[in-house]
Amino acid sequence: SIKEIEKEEIIKVLKEVNFNKKLASEILGIPLRTLYKRLKEYGI
């Protein structure tokens, strides 16, 4: 599903940037606030 793909992509990017959420949100092209929402939604 799209949610699974998105979750995997978020985890992959977070690992690449050593869990720097600000940098991860910039790489993913989403606002930091949205990233936090996704992390909560996906239980990351």
Rank of each mutant, 00 (worst) to 15 (best):
S1H: 12
S1D: 13
S1L: 09
S1P: 14
S1W: 07
S1C: 06
I2V: 14
I2A: 13
I2H: 13
I2N: 15
E4Y: 08
E4F: 09
I5H: 14
I5T: 14
E6R: 09
K7Y: 10
K7E: 05
K7I: 13
E8M: 14
E8C: 07
E8A: 15
E8P: 04
E9M: 15
E9A: 15
E9S: 13
E9T: 14
I10T: 10
I10W: 03
I11G: 03
I11T: 07
I11P: 01
I11W: 08
K12D: 04
K12A: 12
V13H: 02
L14F: 05
L14G: 00
K15C: 04
K15D: 05
K15T: 12
K15I: 13
E16N: 10
E16P: 01
V17G: 02
V17W: 04
V17S: 09
V17A: 11
N18S: 10
N18Q: 10
N18P: 02
N18E: 08
F19R: 03
F19A: 04
N20I: 05
K21R: 10
K21W: 09
K21H: 14
K22Q: 13
K22S: 08
K22F: 10
A24V: 05
A24C: 04
S25F: 01
E26D: 11
E26M: 12
I27G: 02
I27D: 01
L28M: 07
L28C: 02
L28G: 00
G29V: 03
G29Y: 02
G29M: 07
G29H: 06
I30R: 01
P31G: 08
L32C: 02
L32Y: 06
L32N: 02
R33G: 12
R33F: 10
T34Q: 13
T34R: 06
L35H: 00
Y36C: 05
Y36Q: 13
Y36I: 15
K37A: 13
K37G: 06
R38V: 15
R38A: 14
R38F: 15
L39T: 02
L39D: 00
K40R: 13
E41M: 08
E41K: 08
Y42I: 10
G43A: 08
G43Y: 06
G43T: 05
I44V: 08
I44C: 03
I44R: 05
